[in-house]
Measured scan of single mutants.
Amino acid sequence: SISSRVKSKRIQLGLNQAELAQKVGTTQQSIEQLENGKTKRPRFLPELASALGVSVDWLLN
């Protein structure tokens, strides 16, 4: 799922939720909701993929 991929990649990069949120241009709460499965397809998906160094396709599939 996107939530597990985001969380595992974030941890692999040594980032906390607030640091990832800053790179993406969103809030820590938005990252938390995404990782908890409350958000399925965030509006900041391209920025998120870029910050994590992955493709949008990788996040979604």
Score class of each variant (00 low, 15 high):
S1A: 10
S1V: 12
I2T: 06
I2H: 03
I2Y: 04
I2C: 08
S3V: 05
S4H: 13
R5G: 03
R5H: 03
V6L: 08
V6A: 08
S8D: 10
S8T: 11
S8R: 10
K9S: 07
K9F: 05
K9R: 15
K9E: 03
R10Q: 01
R10W: 01
R10L: 02
I11Y: 08
I11Q: 10
Q12L: 10
Q12D: 08
Q12C: 10
L13D: 03
L13H: 05
L13F: 05
G14I: 02
G14Y: 05
L15W: 14
L15M: 14
N16W: 03
Q17C: 10
L20Q: 01
A21H: 01
A21D: 01
Q22I: 12
Q22N: 10
Q22F: 12
Q22H: 12
K23A: 11
K23Q: 10
K23I: 14
V24W: 03
V24M: 06
V24K: 00
T26N: 03
T26E: 07
T26V: 15
T26R: 06
T27V: 05
T27D: 11
Q28A: 12
Q28T: 14
Q28N: 07
Q29C: 09
I31W: 01
I31G: 00
E32S: 10
E32Y: 09
E32R: 12
E32K: 12
Q33S: 14
L34G: 01
L34M: 06
L34R: 05
E35W: 02
E35R: 01
N36G: 10
N36K: 11
N36L: 12
N36E: 11
G37R: 05
K38M: 15
T39S: 11
T39G: 10
T39H: 11
K40V: 13
K40S: 13
K40P: 13
K40E: 13
K40Q: 13
R41T: 13
R43G: 12
R43K: 14
F44T: 02
F44H: 06
L45H: 01
L45T: 04
L45Q: 01
L45R: 02
P46Q: 13
P46V: 14
E47K: 11
E47Q: 14
A49L: 04
A49E: 00
S50M: 14
A51L: 09
A51Q: 06
G53P: 00
G53V: 15
V54N: 00
V54T: 08
V56A: 08
D57W: 15
D57M: 11
D57S: 13
L59S: 00
L59G: 04
N61I: 09
N61S: 13
N61M: 11
